[in-house]
């Protein structure tokens, strides 16, 4: 496996690390201030809707991470450039963690809103299945010892999973309308007030900065792994 990241680019990734950590912490401080203190409680849900400021960004990035995972797998198939395989692998674990966070916070938010910890709502069920798609990808990668082969195989699985997501979404939506009246599962207000947009925006930015920080660290781990592997091969 040869790497086509130049040393200069790797250097930038390394140098960016402290800067990213600091800006993540600053963004989260502002985000927490706005989401817990500066924003008004919702007139229907009261303060419980403050969970939205961590739940919604996690859910967005969980979906975005899978898009990146599948997109870089496709690009890997077209260009055969190993950097795309490394990107896919680096984003997978982060995406899985954010899926888990959005499930757990959604469930905690659900208790005061719906009265139960879990509803078999279409969105929740799709997220649960997304979690297992991530899990399958990561486990498959780990269980194949020949890493060159593993990256080829797991790229194929990522694309199959991505093709399957709209089918799962469609069938789960259909199943949900069949088994449940839609009224309990829908949240009350689809339009968000501007006073809630500000904390949501800052928290999204903060979560994004965090994601980039960890993503860069994971990129460096993969690059170093490759280096170690190559040195051992030469010996």
């Amino acid at each position: 496996m040869n790497l086509r990241l130049t040393n200069k680019q790797i250097n930038i990734i390394e140098k960016a690390n402290p800067f990213l950590i600091v800006s993540t912490i600053v963004a989260f401080t502002f985000g927490l201030y706005f989401s817990l203190l500066q924003s008004p409680p919702d007139y229907i849900q009261g303060d419980s809707m403050r969970i939205m400021y961590i739940h919604v960004p996690s859910a967005w990035f969980a979906l975005m991470a899978y898009t990146i995972l599948a997109g870089s797998s496709v690009l890997w198939f077209i260009t055969r450039n190993p950097i795309f395989s490394i990107i896919a692998r680096s984003i997978a674990q982060i995406g899985m963690i954010f899926t888990l966070i959005s499930l757990v916070t959604g469930s905690i938010w659900g208790k005061p809103t719906w009265g139960v910890w879990w509803v078999w709502d279409a969105r929740l069920t799709s997220m649960l299945l997304l979690f297992f798609l991530y899990l399958a990808y990561i486990f498959l990668w780990k269980s194949i010892t020949n890493k060159d082969l593993a990256s080829k195989i797991s790229a194929a699985l990522a694309i199959v999973g991505f093709v399957n997501i709209p089918i799962i979404k469609f069938s789960v939506d259909w199943w949900n309308t069949l088994h449940q009246p839609a009224t309990i599962s829908k949240l009350s207000s689809p339009s968000i007030d501007i006073s809630m947009m500000i904390p949501l925006f800052i928290m999204t930015l903060a979560t994004f900065l965090f994601l980039v920080t960890v993503f860069f660290i994971r990129l460096r781990i993969e690059i170093l792994d490759n280096k170690i592997l190559r040195i051992r091969e030469v010996k």
């Binding site: 817990l36 009261g46 303060d47 969970i51 961590i54 966070i101 916070t105």
Partner: peptide, 14 residues
């Protein structure tokens, strides 16, 4: 506003 356990556990978990 009475939602302390939910909010703090969600933020804590996050």
């Amino acid at each position: 506003g009475g939602y302390a356990p939910f909010i703090w556990s969600a933020y804590g978990f996050f």
